[in-house]
């Protein structure tokens, strides 16, 4: 054992001249939720399609729990659950019929399928609409059914490709909650998104992808820390600000101090360590502090730093 839920090595794929996925290596540990964060066209779906064995790769290897995955292998697929980015449900079948068909494709017996379908309907909040046709559902309900099909057969690794796109905030929250719930039950999850809040909320580790390349990888903390002295402490005060500037710059842990008419801004590696002494210093120099504000960098800033672009345009 000790195999990772997913191990991807040097994965590549091009469409004609366009290199959609360019030497991506990553792994998802058992029980971990891994987020692939990147803007439109970054190559997330293309990578997912290869990982799920739908699309041929042009280089690299994929292993699911140690077993190689290609477009020709079938057995290993039962360990995977896929929630495609585009809706993938039969509109003229009911929610239950959709679930039943896919349960049977995954080799679930009639009895165990029946119980599991009820369970899944509960998780995705469609129990009372189970026998309505999917084409009568709202967009959010279709999305939820789309997710339900992916987790029917208790996959070891659940892959969700931007499952919350085009969903109202309430449904979105419900979706995020069910992903959290599944993760807490020990399912490994690979989650792609271009919403950094989702990646921050759900994922143990995050890979940042752009133009087909994995630019950086780590926990949210690690990624943010990689930016260096990027915490910002802004002190708004009255009094002789300019005279105090040097003292602020000399504080331990402060990389840079700038003063304007009524604000002193400190750049530091760890705002929490600096803030108390900064207020003391202000006091000592006869300043009256009106407010203190701490801003920590987020993944957006990390992305901006790595690519020179904003995550969403």
């Amino acid at each position: 054992m000790g195999d990772h839920a997913l191990e991807v090595n040097n994965l590549s794929r091009h469409f004609g001249e366009l290199i959609a996925v360019d030497g991506v290596s990553l792994h998802v540990e058992a029980g971990e939720t891994y987020g692939l964060l990147g803007p439109n066209g970054a190559g997330k779906s293309t990578a997912i399609s290869m990982i799920a064995g739908l699309l041929e790769s042009h280089g690299g290897t994929i292993r699911i729990e140690g077993e190689p995955m290609t477009t020709r292998t079938t057995a290993v697929r039962s360990r995977l659950g896929l929630v495609p980015q585009d809706l993938a449900i039969y509109p003229d079948l009911t929610a239950r019929e959709n679930l039943r068909f896919f349960a049977s494709l995954y080799g679930m017996g009639t009895k165990s399928a029946k119980a599991r379908i009820d369970e899944v309907l509960e998780v995705i909040g469609l129990s009372d609409r189970a026998d309505d046709r999917a084409d009568e559902f709202s967009g959010g309900m279709k999305r939820r059914l789309n997710i339900g099909i992916g987790l029917l057969h208790h996959p070891r690794l659940l892959i969700l490709d931007e499952p919350t796109v085009g969903v109202d905030p309430q449904s979105r929250n419900a979706i995020l909650e069910s992903v959290e719930h599944l993760a807490s039950e020990g399912m490994s999850v690979l989650y792609t998104t271009h919403y950094m809040e989702e990646a921050e909320r759900l994922c143990d580790r995050i890979g940042i992808i752009d133009h087909g390349r994995l630019m950086a990888e780590g926990t949210r903390r690690e990624l943010v820390a990689s930016l260096g002295n990027q915490d910002r402490v802004s002190i708004t005060a009255t009094g002789p600000l300019a005279d105090a500037a040097e003292a602020f710059a000399a504080l331990d842990g402060v990389a840079e101090a700038t003063t304007s008419e009524d604000t002193i801004t400190l750049l530091t590696g760890d705002a929490t360590r600096v803030v108390a002494r900064a207020v003391e210093t202000a006091d000592a120099h006869g300043l009256t502090v009106a407010s203190v504000e701490i801003t920590q960098p987020d993944l957006e800033a990390v992305f901006l730093h790595l690519t020179g672009r904003a995550l969403r345009d």
Binding site: A52, R77, L80, P84, A88, I89, F102
Partner: peptide
């Protein structure tokens, strides 16, 4: 067109 081909292909089915 319905997107379900992705699911059929992802299932443990040849």
């Amino acid at each position: 067109d319905e997107g379900t081909m992705a699911r059929l292909l992802a299932a443990p089915v040849s």
